[in-house]
Structures are given as structure tokens and as C-alpha cells.
Design a protein around this nucleic acid. Structure first.
Lengths: 261, 261
DNA sequence: ACCTGAACACCGTTCAAGT
DNA sequence: ACCTGAACACCGTTCAAGT
């Protein structure tokens, strides 16, 4: 399905790594993979992923829709290229010493990358995503962050995967909380909800929905008590998740030291 | 945008909680919210989310496309209803005693729910998702799992959120690894990759891509060394993430006990 | 009241044709 | 070799009309 050549590699992978013979011959009017991907990213940044249609991308470049198909074999392929291009960590990023600080710094880099282009999270990450250049670069940097942590390689990859997914989840969440238009709960709405989310039926969480802190106000409806804006909230979740993972790793390391050396 | 009535609540929320005056009057030919949502879910289960078009859903029910709009005001609303309906935890689920075992059991329930309808992860979860019945039910059960864990309420919600996002991420990942058709790497493809993912450029991760374990074989391309099938792999990541979170919580609890009581 | 038919403004993608 | 024009088979959604 995603394959193309004799190589067995998805064409998006080959294009992204520059393995694709760039045609560049004859009266090229100046279209290219790079320009197409850049136009798509610009469009997604400004108007959202839904605005990225083949027609819109072509129009932004001043070409007809069909001209894109000489460079990109389908819209999905374009989206894959956009996804990877959007997920670029800063070049030559330097991480602090010590796995703990390094992991935190790496997690923050990953989160910032997602935040810069949150629509990229709406593009399904499949097998081919893993082979794309910026994905490989990020993974390599992540592994280097865990350099002096004494767990097996397999677990390191696991930690990196879990942390990057945590970052992705939280950015996606904070994005949807911000974008979707606050659910400005009117007294009527709050009343209706309170009738149905009762302490009897939901003893452990009902009070979070009926807390006076947000009733009637123009605040995001939380899964938890509101303290600040939605962003700070999720910021807290990200920090909590990351901290717990790190403390778990520390506990393991202590245990290993205790029994080992 | 997602609002509808005087209540300020998204219409999907009202429908899902049964607050919407079901028309049911006169010569109803038998269409209903429930039937429409069920048809959509069936379609998504069998043919994927992309196959869920208004036309296809209507056809499956033996009605015209436009008949759906009497019950659902847009496709997005239908998707929201499907998302929540798909995310039903078993009724009256009983969790084991003790927060640790309870949290593991809850996480497993959540993961199984996602696994039963993985396409639901492709529908953006926004603010309104949080207000949907099954989401509230799951959150309540999750909070009950952490009953005897001595951290503040806010952190409990955070833990639940992080764990459910972890489950979602891993199900999504294992889904895309399985569905997208294995990248059956030919020797040519492996060679090309090896030229570009070199130990010099990616010292910490290159060997994972060029490991002989998968070169040329019909195995999933991993972000980590292959041991078994893709599913078991991700199973491992899920377990690792969850274990680390729990161990982090234990460490915190110990610290609190040490200083506190 | 519930459902249908016809229509509208879009999609992604193809194919043959221009230069 | 690169790009265009015309066409196809779909989308979601509207509106006025039937029963």
C-alpha cells in the first residue's frame, strides 16, 4: 500500500531522505517537493489541516492542482512529508549533562516541536513515520539523553517512545481545549449537567463538574479543578507525567544499584 | 461552534445524555440516534473511519443520506457520538483492592475499550468529549481506582489523564503498525536506509535500524529491537510506561510518609 | 412529523493533450 | 520534461417538496 519502488520503502521516505531522483530537467517552472511541502505547512499553520487540499496548495503556489501530482503521488504522501518536515527539532540541539535533566530538556524540545505545528498530530503516525528523517533524528537525540542511565537499550527506546507520546497527547489536548471554542456554560447548561452528573452516579468525580469555580463562567470545562487557563493546566499534566516517569526510573536505578554493584 | 441551544452545551452532549427531545411522533419510519450511531460504528469497525460517510451510513440503514440530518446536525456531531459510544467501559466493572492493582486494571480496561474500536482514536477529542457520558463514567472509575492513594485530587486527575493517554497512544501505535501493511524491506531498501541512517550521523540509534534481526525479513520496522510481533512490542511499552508511573507514585508516597505521619 | 429528490459547491485523482 | 484542461466519481450540506 505505502510501497512504491523495488526498494520496498515508502516513496515518502525516499523523498524525505532525498533518495528520489529530482527530475529537474527541461523547462522546470520551479515547482519542487520542498516548495509544495512548505506551502502545505504554511496553509496548515494558518488555516488548519482541513484547509490543506490539493487545490489550495496548488493555488498558493500559483499552479494548477494537477501539477502537484508530478512530485507527490497522493495527498497522503504529501501529508506524510508535511508531518516529518513539521517535526524538526532544533539543529545541533545540546542537552544538559545527566540523564534526568537531559530527558526533561529533550521532552521539552519534542513538545515545542509539536506545539509549533499541532496539526501534525492529526496526521496518523504509521510505520513510515518512524523511518522519516526528523523522526530518526529526534529518536537519536532522545537516546543520547539517556546515555548514562543504566537500563537496557530496549527500555530506553520505550522511555523515549512513552515520553514523546506524552508530549504529543498533551499538546493535542491543550490544542483542542484552546481551539474548539470554550464551552461557555450558561446556568441552564450547568443545571442540566448537574442533573445528570450527580454525586450518586459519579461519586468520585461529580464535584469536579459542578464545582462553583467554573459554573457559569467562560472557562474551559476541565477534567479537573480549574486553577488557571487551559494551557497551564495541561502543562501541569505534562510535568506530572514526566516527573512520575523520571521518579520511576530513579527508583529502578536505586534498586539496581542496591542489588548489583 | 460546537454549541447549539440556550444551554450552551454542545448538541452531541445533550443527545448522548438523552437530554434531546426525541421527536418520535407521527409516522416514524424507525430512524433514531441510536441506530445511526450503531450503523456508523459498525461501518468504522469493518471498513475503517474513512468509510464512514453520511451516504454510507444512510445506505446501511436503508435510508437516504438526507434523512440523517433530522437526527444529527453534522457529520462531526455523528463522529462525536460514535466516539463516545465506542468508548464504553464494561458496565459495573469491579476493580481490585489497592490503588496499584486497581490502576493497572483500570488502565487495562481503558486500553481494551480503545482496542475494540481503534478508529475512535482518529476522532479529535476536544472539550465536548470530556462531557460525554462514557468519558465521565471512565473518569469516575479511574478516580475510584486511586481511592487509597494519598495525593491531592488534582494529581489524581492528572494520573488518570496521563494513563488513559498512554493507553490511547499505544493502541494507536499498534494499530498503525499492524494495519498499514508491513514495510516489507527488500535488501535494496535496507541498503538505501543504511546509507543514510549511518552510525556516524545517528550514533545512538543507527544500529536499531540496521540490526540483522529484521533486515530483509517481513517484520515490522521497529523503533527498537524486534523480539516478537508488533503487538507484543507495544504491549511492552505500555507496561513499561505504566510501571514507571506507578513506581513514581510509590516513591512519592514513601517520601510523603517519611516526612509526614 | 418524517423522509425524499434535486441541486450546490466542493473533494482527490485520471488521462490525454499542449508547449 | 513539465504543466494544463476537461472530466470522473465522490464528498457534506441546503432547500423545497412530498406523504
Amino acid at each position: 500500500m505505502a510501497e512504491s519502488n523495488e526498494t520496498g520503502l515508502p516513496r515518502a521516505v525516499m523523498i524525505a531522505w532525498g533518495m528520489e531522483e529530482a527530475p529537474q530537467r527541461g523547462p522546470s517552472r520551479g515547482l519542487s517537493h520542498e516548495r509544495i511541502v512548505a506551502a502545505g505547512i504554511e496553509l496548515a499553520d494558518v488555516e488548519g489541516l482541513a484547509a490543506v487540499t490539493m487545490q489550495a496548495v496548488a493555488k498558493a503556489l500559483g499552479f494548477t492542482t494537477m501539477s502537484l501530482y508530478r512530485y507527490v503521488s497522493s495527498k497522503d504522501e504529501l501529508l506524510l512529508l508535511m508531518q516529518d518536515a513539521a517535526f524538526a527539532l532544533p539543529k545541533r540541539a545540546v542537552l544538559p549533562r545527566g540523564w534526568r535533566a537531559a530527558l526533561v530538556a529533550w521532552a521539552e524540545l519534542v513538545r515545542e516541536a509539536y506545539r509549533a505545528h499541532p496539526w501534525a498530530l492529526g496526521i496518523p503516525r504509521g510505520q513510515t513515520s518512524v523511518l522519516m528523517p526528523n523522526s530518526v533524528r529526534a529518536a537519536d537525540l532522545g537516546m543520547s539523553a539517556l546515555g548514562d542511565l543504566e537500563i537496557d537499550q530496549e527500555s530506553k527506546v520505550g522511555v523515549i517512545l512513552v515520553v514523546s507520546q506524552l508530549a504529543a497527547s498533551m499538546v493535542e489536548l491543550e490544542g483542542s481545549l484552546a481551539t474548539e471554542g470554550m464551552v461557555s456554560t450558561t446556568p441552564e447548561g450547568t443545571g442540566l449537567l448537574a442533573e445528570v452528573i450527580t454525586p450518586e452516579r459519579f461519586p468520585h468525580i461529580a464535584r469536579l463538574f459542578t464545582a462553583s469555580s467554573w459554573a457559569g463562567a467562560e472557562q474551559p470545562l476541565p477534567e479537573k479543578p480549574v486553577i488557571d487557563g487551559g494551557t497551564l493546566e495541561v502543562d501541569g499534566e505534562f510535568g506530572l507525567g514526566l516527573s512520575l516517569l523520571i521518579e520511576g526510573l530513579e527508583a529502578r536505578q536505586r534498586a539496581a544499584e542496591g542489588s548489583g554493584a
